[in-house]
Design a protein around this nucleic acid. Structure first.
Lengths: 121, 121
DNA sequence: CGGGATCCAATTTGATACTG
DNA sequence: CAGTATCAAATTGGATCCCG
């Protein structure tokens, strides 16, 4: 019984996901803003309004969708505080925490590769 | 002076790529079939017609586009043999080879995570 | 054989307005 | 504050036909 229903990037041809765990991982982190959000949350910015301020160029709709997708994929936990102005904070799951060092490797590779390829600012 | 011009997944808001090398890496490998192709090429299947046969469910258009994008991003090299029936083989670049172990980590993480999340085959 | 070009469908993203 | 809902625009993917 999967919790995941929608939020799937590739709904039609899931062969990709079925036979490749790499692709699954990339699928999970591959949303347009997910890595950026993951990085911010990891570094302590956890509140919805703060993320919204930080990434003013991301539409609220996308912000919400990506966060929701990450929540469904077990990357983040959504904590709701029933205060007077409601407060929502996001924290990383253990799975996401395990992912961080791998993402750092990707980051290193990426910067090296960009240098080689020639950056188009 | 960038060799890359098109083939960009996100043409409008490149802020993402500008301030996040992780995102760049994911961008480079994030194409729908790229990881699958990378994996095959890595394992020795390098000829266009073989890839086409292997991934019969990928349209030729996509196969070509993804290969071209990977070539532009410095992941693979396209070797053309001017024989009678023309032959084209693809090989990994050193950069792609460096990427492989990182992808393996992602694969491991992915399979673990899928088990936790409950797979919806 | 190894694509390229064209046309069309599916999916994703964005802008804006509204709500508990 | 923290989202939803709705509609439109941009991007991506697929089918088919053509070419050196």
């Amino acid at each position: 019984m999967g919790t995941r229903k929608q939020s799937s990037t590739y709904t039609r041809n899931e062969k990709l996901i079925i036979n490749c765990n790499m692709s699954y991982a990339v699928h999970v982190i591959g949303g347009r803003w997910k890595l950026l959000l993951l990085d911010k949350i990891r570094k302590g910015t956890s509140r919805y309004s703060d993320l919204k301020k930080e990434f003013s160029y991301i539409s609220e709709r996308m912000l919400t969708l990506q966060l929701k997708s990450m929540e469904q994929d077990g990357l983040i936990i959504r904590n709701v505080f029933a205060e007077v102005p409601i407060r929502v904070e996001y924290t990383l799951t253990p799975a996401a925490t395990e992912l961080i060092p791998i993402l750092d490797l990707l980051s290193t590779w990426g910067s090296k590769q960009r240098a080689l390829q020639g950056d188009n600012s």
